[in-house]
């Protein structure tokens, strides 16, 4: 098993109101089987042993589904592997001696909490604005009462697969949340269950997205390119259509 030594440039920032900077570190004995976050664990173990403050970064499931991890690696959210969260990125994709720059998501709507950790609560507020079907528990009809074509269900699932990590925002030069918001709007607009509130949902979610300070979409597709779940940009087109229709037909 090959081991590597890597030069790291890592963003350190003690708190939201304190300026941050890139600090150099060396990662030694990095095995190619390590995940990127395990490599950082090893660096942190070394820092703790030296009595230094370890690097704060978010992670939880470490299998690419919770959406908690959020590192910009060499300028790319989640790093160089397509369709991969940074927790699933393995060190076999890096070379011995390479320099790696690690930064947090950067967006006005995602303020830095500490080091590589940002506050993504804006996403929760976008969902709260309308990303649901308004039904209470109890009284739901039989699950097979509404047949849904396989193609429709599959398409909805493609959008619903979003893990809410925010890489789309971090990749966008406008820090736009269009891909995230449109994925939820698409999922529910495609399903029959989402029809009743289809119009008010899109309007409310888009208004909330704007209120949070996310930027506009200028159709460059960086969001799709970095999305670890490869959510297609066609969702954004659908959201714009949904929004236009909702606004034009608003009563």
């Amino acid at each position: 098993m090959a081991t590597m030594t890597l030069k790291l440039q890592i963003w350190r920032q003690p708190g939201p109101s304190v300026p941050g900077r890139l600090v150099p570190y060396t990662a030694e004995g990095v095995s190619s089987d390590m995940s990127f976050l395990e490599m950082l664990d090893v660096v942190n173990e070394g820092l703790i042993a030296k009595g230094e403050d370890p690097i704060a970064f978010d992670s939880d499931c470490r299998e690419g589904i919770c959406g908690m991890c959020s590192l910009v690696v060499n300028g790319i959210p989640h790093g160089p592997e397509r369709g991969t969260t940074v927790c699933q990125l393995h060190m076999r994709h890096f070379k011995d001696g390479e320099t790696i720059t690690i930064e947090p998501w950067r967006a006005r709507a995602f303020p830095v909490v500490k080091d590589l950790i940002v506050d993504r609560s804006a996403f929760d507020r976008i969902i709260a604005a309308g990303g649901f079907v308004s039904i209470n528990v109890g009284g739901a009809p039989d699950g097979n009462a509404i047949p849904i074509g396989k193609a429709t269900a599959d398409l909805a699932m493609d959008s619903a697969a979003c893990i809410g990590c925010g890489a789309c925002v971090a990749a966008c030069k406008n820090a736009s949340a269009h891909l995230f918001t449109s994925a939820k709007i698409s999922h529910l607009a495609l399903m029959p269950q989402g029809q009743v509130e289809r119009q008010q949902r899109v309007v409310r979610m888009v208004e909330q997205m704007d209120a949070e300070g996310f930027g506009s979409c200028s159709n460059e597709g960086e969001c799709e390119a970095v999305c670890p779940k490869e959510i297609p940009i066609s969702n954004i087109a659908r959201m714009v259509r949904e929004y236009t229709r909702a606004v034009l037909t608003r009563r």
Binding site: V133, G138, A140, D142, G143, G149, G194
Partner: peptide, 21 residues
């Protein structure tokens, strides 16, 4: 009841070609 509830919420469960779960 759980399945009914989740379907009503819009959970995109896998479907057969005929549209059933």
């Amino acid at each position: 009841n759980i399945i009914d509830q989740c379907v009503a919420q819009g959970v995109p469960f896998a479907r057969e070609y005929g549209g059933l779960l």
